[in-house]
């Protein structure tokens, strides 16, 4: 097991290097001259050359990449023009806010999704199975930000129950209850898509396992329905579900760009959306890199968890 973990950790290194290369290349595909973008068309040739030199753009790509990598390793992600502050500081400050949404969203989606999926699979083609299948279909066909807008329209504007924007009330806000009230709708919005995907995966995976020989054998041994479902089928269906849950954690981080924009929630996603509209490439680059790195580590933990559930890895 330890060897497995070390092995996987070793495999992370080339992936992480690849991620930095990809983010670096993102900057290179910007059409036109980066200097023109930064200075506008009116700058003199001397100004442009000076900037070019100070940015290291006169060097070849190889050198530029290693400069970039070196900067990142030292925590220098550049400076955000939108916030007029170092990118890393902006991101770290906002990462916590994103976590306030993402962690409960994944938790809700996982618990409800697995329950609903198992419940549907116990009676395939029944009314409840079909209702769940149809709900999953609609939820996966729905842009999450649109769902967010609908929630705002209904709970926020129509009923006036919940605040629809920001993280806390401007006056006297900031305590737990206040933040929770602000977070509720964005959390539901984020959870919806993941919930649907997790439900679908659980159902499919359970139905696959339930049609296997060993489940039939366990029924032939006189085991009760609950023993078969929770004792035999679920443990075999769970690994596939864990993988999907891990993917959802990543989607929460990127889906936040849309959801946080809709709710003006001051997280990483909102910052990225602002970076896009302001063409603040430093911030965009830094944000994408940070999310990708977090995602790589989430996947690593999912792999380890997967192995914990897999006897073939556990005992060898």
């Amino acid at each position: 097991m330890t060897r497995f973990i070390l092995n996987r950790l070793g495999q992370l290194i080339p992936v992480l290097i690849g991620v930095t290369i990809a983010v670096f290349l993102l900057r290179q595909i910007i059409p036109g001259d980066a200097v023109d973008v930064l200075l506008g068309g009116t700058a003199s040739q001397e100004e442009r050359d000076a900037l070019r030199e100070s940015l290291g753009l006169d060097k070849n790509l190889f050198v530029q990449y290693f400069t970039y990598l070196g900067n990142i390793l030292q925590g220098d992600f550049g400076r955000s023009s939108t916030y007029n502050a170092p990118v890393l500081g902006v991101l770290i400050e906002r990462l916590g806010n994103t976590a306030i949404l993402a962690i409960p969203a994944v938790a809700i989606a996982s618990v409800v999704g697995v329950t609903a999926g198992v419940w549907a699979s116990r009676k395939p083609n029944s009314f409840r199975d079909r209702s769940i299948t149809v709900s999953v279909l609609i939820l996966t066909s729905m842009p999450s930000f649109w769902l967010g807008i609908l929630l705002i329209l209904f709970f926020g504007l129509q009923l006036g129950w919940l605040p629809v924007s920001g993280k806390q009330s401007l006056i006297g806000g900031g305590d737990f209850l206040d933040v929770a009230r602000h977070a509720l709708l964005p959390i539901l919005t984020l959870a919806a898509w993941s919930l649907a995907v997790i439900t679908r995966m659980t159902r499919t995976s359970m139905l696959g396992v339930l049609s296997s020989d060993y489940v039939r054998s366990s029924i032939a041994r006189g085991l009760s329905k609950n023993q078969v479902v929770y004792g035999h089928a679920l443990p075999n269906a769970i690994p596939a579900v864990i993988t999907v849950i891990g993917l959802q954690a990543g989607f929460q981080l990127s889906g936040a760009v849309l959801t946080e924009t809709v709710f003006s929630w001051p997280g990483i996603g909102f910052a990225l959306a602002q970076a896009i509209s302001n063409r603040d490439m430093e911030l965009l680059q830094g944000g994408i890199l940070m999310i990708a790195v977090i995602f790589v580590f989430i996947n690593f933990f999912v792999d380890v968890l997967y192995a914990v559930f897999n006897p073939k890895v556990k005992v060898s």
């Binding site: 296997s212 020989d213 060993y214 054998s217 366990s218 004792g231 035999h232 443990p235 075999n236 559930f309 897999n310 006897p311 073939k312």
Partner: peptide
């Protein structure tokens, strides 16, 4: 295929 792979 008739023994549950996850159980001892």
């Amino acid at each position: 295929s008739n023994l549950n792979p996850m159980k001892r």
